[in-house]
Write a protein that binds this DNA or RNA. Structure first.
Lengths: 338, 338
DNA sequence: TTGAAAGCGGTACCAC
DNA sequence: GTGGTACCGCTTTCAA
């Protein structure tokens, strides 16, 4: 059996309460008493029981990171993995533990398990990696009394706190960049149209904005939907090159699809970037090592994760007045692929 | 305030005990009573309080996935991310939650925080992603009374349960493969030599074994150490090509370093795979999309994760007699790079 | 089959 | 500054 507070109290010849005091508000305890108690704690190797503490304090110093996954997922998402790792770091910096949970979209009662984590008081708050979160669940989420922040998606109308990046601007910058390099027929490989989600949508918006600014028309068939996976990028490229007028540039909505496109282009015998420019989105670690090195849009993942945890902790603390969202800047990273 | 069991009891006109019974061993409850209680539960939206339950039952149905990271880490490890995701899936399948925690190697008291999770009864068990775990901590771990399983590293002498793969055989297969393709000067880019760790070591062993079987000598300077990161693979390759007799094949201990090597080789003007064959290890999702597509060694990550969770759950349940380790097969995946 | 009471290991609130 | 006591919400005896 593990050592309890009561045993420490006995060992130090004080009451349980006093031990509790040295553990928490140790200011109230006389130095000599505290010293004695601490010695016994050390000696017995006492550690407070987490469950008992949570029960009494009714919070757990535990946050959840919820991945909302489309099913079937083409493959694990390296970007999500990165975000998650960043959140983990941010959480630990704030002395909280992190529970990882994946919600499978379309699973019966998908959100119930998240809600249960709250009602069971298992977690104090959750950050939702929500790029694929359909708009209609936002209403449900907003109606909850539980602290939740959305990451990787905006949600201005829902009133939910969120952290996003300037996706549209990023894609726009990519379009303008390739246009500046002399490309005229610029296609776009986007995220899944179904269910409609904001992450995919804002990238698409950025594409259209960029095209407009460059005075380019969006040709028939130049917008193709992928599923964020490598293979879908390859498929999209093949589809584009069956068009009567294939593009001379492809702007992809993430790095994975960009790599897939690169791959398929090569299989078609295209010289890169001569025959086709390709840009990605996300700047995954491998991007700079590809051939050609991928021109892409950097997302400030670390900062976003930190901001999300910060916002979440505010919400947990019940600070209503504070900032409820952050939109961080993206940055075009020019390499060889475009 | 959340709904409590007592309120359910009142609502159903029974004692708290009876409610508890329908929640747990519902066999003991008369069907009609159970139905009534369940109705009230449903109606009130009752969920049992996690802390109270853990306190009473003295287990948490929570597992931890501990990443043991060298510091500084060159970049987030996509392989670790994959493993972690797989463990998460395996844990959820076993109806356990997963806490993610990163131990920074060299941090003062690195292991104390893990031990604290146990003594505070925060978790029931932990799987350690232990490929970079130095040998000397194994002794400490083995002395603990807490359920722990090592993933991605063997540890036969410690008595700790572990799940590993046939790393040496995988590398050996890669060496034999490139030799079969006519390569004679085969170099090896391995993991960090310091601190000495088994994952790196067994890959190196496999290299030597493979060379021996092929009747090849390991030339001076043909074994270079990386740190698992992309950049280190690139640096290793450059270093190899400063040798009087550069290799005509490079076997890398992971895919990231292989990609780095590919990149550096191209920068040197080498034609791939004509001038240089490169193999990786791990078969990350991007491997098949590289140019040239990466010949690599597949690791059964899903199976390993499942096995690890299984072993851990056995250990938690105190099943001493059961299997304490698993070594899963690797598989050479031949593509274009070698 | 059900209920009463004790207690898991802490913390809050009250006296002293 | 310190100790007594109730109680967080649930499960486990033990009786009824």
């Amino acid at each position: 059996m593990a050592v309890t507070l009561k045993q420490v109290a006995e060992g130090a010849g004080v009451s349980p309460q006093t031990v509790s005091n040295v553990l928490n508000k140790s200011l109230l305890v006389k130095p000599s008493t505290r010293a004695r108690v601490e010695e016994v704690i050390e000696q017995l190797g006492y550690e407070p029981n987490f469950a008992a503490r949570s029960l009494r304090r009714s919070h757990t110093r535990t946050l959840a990171c919820i991945l909302y996954q489309r099913t079937p997922e083409p493959e694990p998402d390296p970007y999500a993995a990165l975000v998650q790792a960043s959140i983990s770091t941010a959480a630990r910096a704030a002395k909280h533990d992190l529970l990882i949970h994946t919600l499978l979209s379309g699973e019966p009662g998908e959100l119930r398990v998240l809600e249960a984590m709250f009602t069971q008081r298992r977690i104090d708050g959750a950050v939702l990696l929500a790029s694929d979160l359909p708009d209609d669940v936002l209403g449900l989420l907003a109606a909850w009394p539980h602290p939740v922040v959305l990451l990787d998606r905006d949600a201005p109308e829902s009133g939910l706190p969120y952290v996003a990046a300037t996706y549209a601007e990023g894609v726009r910058a990519a379009v303008r960049h390739v246009h500046g390099r002399g490309r005229q027929r610029i296609a776009f490989v986007g995220g899944p149209p179904q269910p409609l989600n904001r992450g995919a949508q804002s990238r698409l918006t950025g594409y259209h904005a960029g095209m407009r600014e460059c005075g380019l028309d969006v040709e028939e068939g130049y917008v193709v939907a992928g599923d964020w996976g490598y293979a879908s990028g390859a498929a999209a490229l093949r589809q584009l090159f069956e068009l009567p007028e294939p593009p001379d540039a492809v702007v992809a909505a993430n790095d994975r699809m960009a790599l897939g496109a690169l791959h398929a282009a090569r299989a078609l015998g295209l010289r890169l970037p001569h025959d086709l420019a390709v840009t990605g989105f996300g700047d995954l670690d491998f991007a700079r090592y590809l051939h050609p090195a991928l021109t892409t849009v950097d997302l400030p993942v670390q900062d976003m994760a930190r901001a999300a945890v910060q916002l979440l902790l505010n919400a947990v603390a019940g600070e209503v007045k504070s900032v409820t969202h952050r939109v961080l800047p993206t940055r075009l990273v020019v390499r060889q692929s475009a």
